[in-house]
Amino acid sequence: MGRAGAGAVSRRAVLVVPVGLAVLAVSEVLLRGGDLAGGFAALLLLALATTVPLPFVLRTGTGRLARGGAAVAISAACVLSLVPFGMLTVGGVVAQLVCVYVLGRAGATALGGLFVLPYVVIALAGHEDPTRIVAVLVATLASAAAATGIAHHVRSTALAHSVTEQAFADTLLEHAARGERARIARELHDVVAHHISMIAVQAETARLTTPGLPAEGATRLLAIGDTARTALTEMRRLLGVLREDAHTGVQRRPQPGLRQLMELVDESRDAAGSRTRLIVSGPVTMLDPGIEVTAYRIVQEALTNARRHAPGAAVDVELRYGNADLTVRVRDNGPGQPATHDSGHGLLGMRERAATVGGTLRTGSAPGGGFLVEARLPVNPDDDEEAPA
């Protein structure tokens, strides 16, 4: 019957059902008026009494006392109509069954069962056959109605408990996840960040204290120190994301995207001391942030690999905007030895990044020499088209 709760009935039904049952009960008394003699007026009042209080039972906002009182009035009117006069209208029977069902569904199982008891007593008290038959019929139907209401109540209670338990489990899981993120943040801060800062310090110390260091070596050490400090800054941002409960003291910045790619190319050019170009083709459009940060990280890693494995080589970074995908190509004119470039976890990390957004990554020797990293990232991740490997 919806989410209104046990025994919830629409406002229209609260009025229409009792009125309909009252009309049915009164009509039945009027049709049998010739057979009732002096009890006609009393039966007419009892017929109304068995149906008129029903809205107080059906209405969801009714308190327990008012609902129980209305149910008692209906049940008493039904019993008084059956025992002295030997007649119980169909409307009265339906009203009695509705009362027992609603009380059972609302959780008042004892009160619902109490209303079945008078009919059992009437059936066993040796009344005339018509009265006994009606009493047995009402007792049977009322027991079934009460059982149905109780079953609905048990089911709704179990569902409510299940929802509560699920919410509690989700809360515990979220707390556990936050604790794990805090632990990872501590490990990154205490171990990894320390070592990266030591790299920056040692590179700077070596550059300033090594006698007879060539200019090229000093440039390389300066680039190592700058790269370490950049990595330290990125790690601080990551720590700010992991420590959700530490909103102060951590500077948070948006994830980098393609608009920051020119800065990345300039930094790579200055660090490597070689020619690095950015080539853009196709209509430039705003892409999903996940696609942009993936493309940025792939270019970042590819430039790092080029500086490491092909020092001094010229590098071309190309972005090709298409209708279905974004093609990212990073090509250097170095020796192009796949075995050298494949060492470490750089290429694996790039493949995993591309796969997370539904894209693909191809690496290997470039036509005409050098090494090529090419990623194809879908502009719309929901598309079913797959970029060729």
Rank of each mutant, 00 (worst) to 15 (best):
A246L: 14
H247Q: 06
G249W: 10
G249H: 11
V250D: 09
V250M: 13
Q251H: 11
R253Y: 12
P254S: 14
P256F: 14
G257A: 09
R259D: 06
R259V: 02
L261R: 11
M262C: 07
M262A: 13
V265G: 00
E267V: 06
S268Y: 11
R269I: 02
D270M: 15
D270S: 15
G273D: 02
G273N: 07
S274T: 10
R275F: 15
T276D: 11
R277E: 05
R277C: 12
L278Q: 03
I279A: 04
I279K: 05
S281M: 00
S281H: 02
G282W: 05
M286P: 04
M286Y: 05
D288T: 10
P289W: 13
P289I: 15
P289Y: 13
G290S: 13
I291W: 08
I291E: 12
V293K: 04
V293W: 11
T294F: 04
T294C: 08
T294D: 03
T294S: 09
Y296S: 00
Y296M: 03
R297P: 00
I298W: 07
I298Q: 06
I298E: 06
I298K: 02
V299T: 12
V299R: 05
V299H: 02
Q300A: 08
Q300Y: 03
E301Q: 09
E301T: 07
T304M: 10
N305M: 14
A306V: 13
R307Y: 05
R308I: 09
P311I: 06
P311E: 13
G312P: 06
A314C: 03
A314G: 01
V315T: 04
V315G: 02
D316W: 11
D316Q: 14
L319S: 05
R320C: 04
R320N: 06
G322H: 10
N323Q: 12
N323L: 11
A324E: 15
A324L: 08
D325T: 00
L326R: 00
R329Y: 03
V330H: 03
V330C: 00
V330Y: 01
V330F: 04
D332F: 04
D332M: 03
N333E: 15
N333G: 04
G334H: 09
P335N: 12
Q337R: 12
Q337V: 15
Q337K: 10
P338Q: 09
T340C: 11
T340Q: 07
D342G: 07
D342A: 15
S343M: 05
S343N: 02
S343Y: 07
G344I: 10
H345V: 13
H345C: 07
L347R: 04
L348K: 13
M350W: 02
R351V: 13
E352V: 06
R353C: 01
A354P: 06
A354F: 10
V357L: 05
G358E: 00
L361A: 12
L361C: 13
